[in-house]
Amino acid sequence: MAVDYKELKKGGFMRQRQKDCFSMRLKSVGGHFTAAQLGTIQQVAEKFGKGYVHLTSRQGIEIPFIRLEDIDEVKKALHEGGVSVGVCGPRVRTITACQGCAVCASGLIDTQKLANEFDKRYGGRELPHKFKFGFTGCHNNCLKAEENDVGVKGGIKPQWAQDNCTFCGVCEAVCPEKAITVDAANGEVRIDRDKCVYCGKCIKSCPTDAWQGKAGFVISFGGLYGNRIAVGRHFLPIVFEEEKLYAIVDATLAFFEEYAKPSERFANCLDRVGWDKLEKRVEEILCVRK
């Protein structure tokens, strides 16, 4: 019987050099696996593979040397242990995320919660080409948000509380974009909103809580890391509501489906049809949902 290798790859089985052997990709969301799932993966790797796994660059796990004749039995063993096979091909791929504010002291947003919600809404969705989402909790950017087709970074919009300020100048010193000017002589602190990147360093460093703020989402578009490298672009203000974030993503994926040629990555599509078209599309979402 003929083997449909394209369908196998779509279902997470990548052909190896060795005849009828596959490196099996497992489903991961935000790099999170339970200890019980890891136990199942160990058992499958020992029984059906060669006793080891490969950790991918996108927080996933692959088990090499799965034989063609064992695939159905392997799927059954994984399912019984609460593990799913991943996906490949032209669709939404593994969603990456750092630990976020639920664990990390630097985190500004709950990246794991968002990654799981994105997986429910968009995981495995078929598109003109592969599409990657990545979440990082703060501007330390451990998960490199701008490498993704759409990246979401935790940010915070600072507001100055004059009554608490001692004009010590710490905020001006730590601001990486030199957006803050402290004028102690006149009792003023000014922030250039066009320079602010919502990193929150002024808030974290202020000894008197003179800087406060609300956390939100800093979104980048069109990142690419492969044969061609492109850094995702920022053109939206910080977004605070989750529903606005989903609406922006819905519009972005619809745009990709509408304009992309088959096997054309999102960044290449935007370069061809014009970034201004996407900017107008997503900016309309913010205006409508104010």
Rank of each mutant, 00 (worst) to 15 (best):
E264V: 02
A36T: 07
W160V: 01
V282F: 08
K6P: 00
V87R: 13
L114C: 09
G12N: 05
L143M: 15
R289A: 07
V87T: 07
Q212N: 06
Y259I: 04
L143V: 12
F33C: 02
R91M: 06
K6I: 02
F13Y: 15
T40C: 01
S57H: 13
I95G: 01
Q159F: 15
G123F: 01
Q18S: 13
Y52Q: 06
E146S: 15
S23I: 14
A230V: 14
C199Q: 14
T181C: 03
G123R: 05
V92N: 00
V288L: 12
R233W: 10
G11D: 12
F118K: 05
G155W: 07
K120A: 14
K132Y: 07
A102H: 10
V53R: 10
V3Q: 01
E147T: 14
D183M: 12
A267Q: 09
G223L: 01
E117N: 13
G169R: 11
Q43R: 15
D70L: 11
F135N: 04
P262D: 08
E177D: 01
P128Q: 01
F217P: 09
A254M: 08
D192M: 00
I63P: 05
F266R: 05
A115R: 09
Y52G: 08
G137S: 06
E257L: 10
G232A: 11
Y52S: 12
G155C: 08
R272V: 09
G100F: 10
P90K: 07
C175P: 12
T34S: 15
C88P: 00
L253S: 03
C101E: 03
S263R: 15
L108P: 15
P237K: 10
E279A: 05
K178G: 05
G60K: 08
D183R: 15
K178E: 09
N116D: 04
M14G: 07
G81T: 06
G213I: 11
Y259A: 04
F235P: 11
K19W: 05
E177C: 02
V83K: 05
S205P: 01
Q18H: 14
E172C: 12
E279F: 05
L55Q: 04
N227T: 04
E73G: 08
T208G: 00
A185K: 06
G12T: 00
Y122T: 04
C168M: 00
L68I: 09
F217N: 03
R93E: 00
L278G: 03
V239H: 00
I41C: 14
A105N: 15
R125Q: 11
I238H: 01
C104T: 02
K214D: 02
F33T: 03
V189P: 14
G124R: 11
H234I: 06
G11L: 13
S57F: 10
G169K: 06
A247L: 14
F13E: 12
R25H: 01
A247G: 04
K9A: 13
D163P: 03
F22T: 06
T166P: 05
G232N: 08
A145D: 10
